[in-house]
Design a protein around this nucleic acid. Structure first.
Lengths: 362, 362
DNA sequence: TTGTACGCGTTATCAT
DNA sequence: ATGATAACGCGTACAA
């Protein structure tokens, strides 16, 4: 018994296609063709091959296969901050579609910081057949991607440039709808807490302005460094306790809204009686805040699914629509919950004073 | 100008080591040795090689390299439900360490359902150098992993079996601490909403029992099918509105707690006045519930970090400690917040009735 | 110090 | 219907 009877935690090398061919008494070419379903053989041969594969527990080596097919069998997804449930849902959607297509998902967190985005992309690009990335990456990174020839689908906002595929909700329209909701509830003094690092924070701001155009509403704009709950808490007092406080606060995303909501209550304000609060993304935990958070559902999971579907089509070569590249708009919807309510006899005039001489929307 | 000036969206094939060698006027062996840092050369040669690499934008083909070295440069992580912020943090921790080590992270969602766990693992195993998986996988899957010889680190509970590495908080002790907290606050009627599919739900139950041993506390145990907020909402009424309602509810995790918390308030109960509620994991959004959720921090992100560090050590061959395999216990801590409070003049006797004839802890 | 040549496991081409 | 063999790009033992 000198041969390795019990390999002591030693990883035994996997069977190769040659082992299978030998065991079945055929050539490697036969085994390969049989596996890839490209050809049928004698029942006799097919049985022997099948048996050998089972006996040896053979499965093809993805790297060797990749060397000649030029495909890795992996797709990559670059996420800005995986701790934001919005992106988590996106990953979930993308992951499901990839799995069903037999592809593996290579995950990269851009918020990791330590590595520059460009370096990360370059490292990733050799190990994947295609990439799903945020439309919010740095300009050098986006530029490199465009020239790389790698199939890419952008999520979030529209990605300018020919041949670019992107998918996401329409930010202006989403904000327009949310603005209408607030306007219909009788709000007139709106503060928007934006996140100018994200290109589409501005689109949301514009939608908001549009909603209040001609209503005599007064819109103010704030900005934060990061779109996280802590930042919402930090700016809450300066937003809420200023000279002419807002009767509604809209934030760039739900995380910020959650922070503002918590801090507003800590400051002794009643939500939504004193101030309404709303965000974007419809993250799950907005439901479990109290009052539950009004938000706009931007179809996070669906975004991931569609992005992955488009990416796979591009990888497989079936270019959908014109070969040009296209932005796919997902429909969003307002999810009205307890954090926004009709402005009745609040602490401010609000309604009742039918816009005589009110400051016009900027 | 007949050469490809503007490659029309066609992915140009990357430069190979041979291209670099030719451009630098040396052999491929020289380039390879130089890159891998194995050897020094004439300044003259090194400069030419460096220049050629830069000019051609060369980077080695991971697949070809992998064929020789037997390493993929990828590590895999299998997550049960990425939408649970606990696991999200775990991924974040693992991702950071992997990135810093120059490894890519292959992500798989076991909750995807469509593929059996075993199949997923087998597909993954050929594409990674090691795997981080939940100690909560199915028995066949765990069994296959043990025999595969693949470096594996388990997260969550302890993984029985020689040569197994696992990392996580001590569930019994965590529950014991939480139980003590509740006991000190004067609670005596505790209901635990467990999730028996998770092995360590039982450990938490035991810790809870231990905390109330000899206190005259009455512990009841419920169970849910899934550890998500919706399930918490579903069972809330049967837990809270029974004949002898609990003065505190402990749930298997924060998601369940959030569901119970919301539903309790919807049922007209005051939290924590009528009933205290607490969970496990310290997910971020517990802070933004109101009242904020008392929980036990189980070091989610740290778990991911440590797991990845151990995995990398195993892959590199530096086996830490005895070559045997070991469970690493992370210290957890109670995070007391608004959802638990001293039982004063609640709706039940609670305190005041110094255990005369009270039902002993089961 | 530098170059040659082989092998890794697979698929594709061509011949039988 | 089946087999022989040439790539794929890289690392490395060995030769020079």
């Amino acid at each position: 018994m000198t041969d390795e009877a019990t390999p002591p935690a030693r990883r035994r090398k996997a069977a190769t296609i040659r082992d299978v061919a030998e065991a079945a008494g055929v050539s490697t070419a036969t085994v390969s063709k049989f596996i890839n379903g490209g050809q049928r053989f004698t029942r006799e041969v097919e049985d022997r091959v099948t048996q050998a594969i089972r006996d040896l527990g053979y499965s093809s080596n993805p790297m060797a296969r990749g060397m000649i097919t030029g495909q890795t069998g992996n797709v990559g997804i670059v996420i800005l901050d995986i701790c934001n449930p919005h992106f988590t849902s996106l990953v979930k959607g993308a992951s499901g579609v990839a799995t069903r297509a037999g592809l593996n998902l290579l995950f990269a967190d851009a918020a990791e910081g330590h590595t520059p985005e460009l370096t990360m992309l370059q490292a990733l690009s050799r190990r994947v057949d295609g990439l799903i990335v945020s439309a919010r990456l740095s300009e050098p990174a986006l530029d490199w991607l465009r020239h790389s020839g790698l199939p890419v689908v952008y999520y979030g906002g529209q990605q300018p440039g020919a041949g670019c595929y992107s998918v996401g909700a329409d930010n202006r329209v989403s904000a327009l709808m949310l603005g209408r909701h607030l306007r219909d509830l009788g709000h007139r003094r709106i503060s928007y807490i934006g996140f100018s690092s994200a290109r589409w924070s501005t689109e949301r701001w514009q939608g908001l302005q549009e909603a209040f155009a001609g209503s005599g509403g007064v819109l103010r704009r704030f900005d934060v460094e990061a779109a996280v709950a802590e930042e919402g808490e930090r700016v809450a007092s300066s937003v809420l306790l200023c000279a002419e406080p807002p009767d509604a606060v809209v934030t760039y995303n739900d995380l910020l809204a959650l922070g503002v909501l918590g801090q507003a209550q800590a400051l002794g304000l009643k939500v939504p009686d004193d101030v309404s609060i709303a965000g974007f993304d419809n993250i799950v935990y907005g439901r479990y805040a109290s009052p539950a958070l009004t938000t706009v559902d931007t179809a996070s999971e669906k975004t991931g699914e569609i992005a992955m579907q488009r990416l796979i089509e591009r990888i497989r070569g079936d270019v959908p629509g014109e070969a040009a590249g296209v932005h796919e708009t997902l429909t969003s919807r307002v999810v009205a919950r307890g954090s926004t309510a009709r402005r009745g006899a609040g602490r401010l005039s609000g309604l009742g004073a039918p816009e005589l001489g009110t400051v016009p929307t900027p």
